[in-house]
């Protein structure tokens, strides 16, 4: 989602090599933590969670030779701030072509901030069936939680101020892999 107001990039906190290394480390943690990998399914939250999920699935295939299916979740219809939204979010397809019942779900998103997206995602998944467990994987945890939610696998803890904006770019849709912190230059 592009912000329309102008912003200034303050730092480039991750590049392609760092993202690759971090995903490799988290994949190892997933394999270590899930003794029964065959019961694991990945659900990526639109948009960048999908690509992170696919990369992790590919990595698990490489390391353990097990095919982990990746589903796509759109949480728009589960948002808790719908009536207050200034603008409307286009609803995109949820594509989870496997049963979630009794599965170990690995929920994947790019940035963990207030925790509200994850609350919505968990409600949405539970409406699809009753999973055995839900685990959360996040590339960047930027703090400022408003709900009691914590990720199992974290790529990088990144302390930020609330004003700052974290951009995760992935080459599947943004041409290159990087994580940037920027700040709006408009009125404070």
């Amino acid at each position: 989602m592009e912000d329309k107001t102008k912003e200034k990039v303050k730092a480039r906190v991750m590049d392609s090599r760092k993202i690759k290394r971090v995903l490799h480390r988290m994949t190892t943690e997933i394999i270590e933590h899930n003794r029964n990998l065959k019961n694991l399914v990945i659900v990526g939250i639109r948009t960048r969670g999908i690509y992170l999920g696919k990369r992790i699935s590919a990595q698990i295939k490489e390391m353990e030779n097990i095919e982990i299916p990746v589903g796509v979740l759109d949480i728009t219809l589960y948002r808790d701030d719908f009536s207050e939204l200034e603008s409307q979010h286009m609803v995109k397809k949820t594509e989870i072509n496997f049963s979630v019942a009794n599965k170990d779900i690995l929920l994947v998103d790019d940035v963990l901030f207030t925790g509200r997206t994850i609350r919505a995602a968990m409600d949405s998944i539970i409406d699809l069936g009753r999973p055995q467990t839900i685990q959360l994987l996040i590339l960047i945890d930027r703090g400022h939680r408003e709900l009691p939610i914590r990720a199992h696998y974290v790529g990088k803890f990144l302390p930020t101020s609330k004003r700052e904006i974290v951009h995760v770019r992935l080459k599947e849709i943004d041409d290159k892999d990087e994580v940037l912190i920027s700040e709006p230059t408009g009125i404070k």
Binding site: M1, F82, E84, L85, E86, S87, Q88, H89, M90
Partner: peptide
């Protein structure tokens, strides 16, 4: 689409 969002500009 009619009932959602105050100003109804659609964000992807």
């Amino acid at each position: 689409l009619l009932m959602g969002g105050k100003e109804r500009e659609i964000i992807d």
